[in-house]
Amino acid sequence: MKGLAGRLRLHSHDVLLVAFVGVTLLGIAGVLGGGGRAVLPDVGGSRRVDLEALTRRIEAGELSAREALWYHAEPAERDGQGRL
């Protein structure tokens, strides 16, 4: 009785193809299982801003440095020596 490998006579390129398909399916399963949640940032985040452009446009009077309402400053974190 021949073994399965003997019957199918798998070659190296077949193994590569099977591996490629398997990895692709795993990737798809990962995305579907995650519900695509990583697309948008969660609450509480912040964004980088082009500070040079922003400062230039504030100085040119095209944008404002008006202080906002409804915020608070977080206490500064202490470094290794306990300094603020």
């Binding site: 404002s64 440095a65 202080e67 906002a68």
Partner: peptide
Amino acid sequence: RLRATTYGH
């Protein structure tokens, strides 16, 4: 300080 950068613009 938090700035409202589009105030008036």
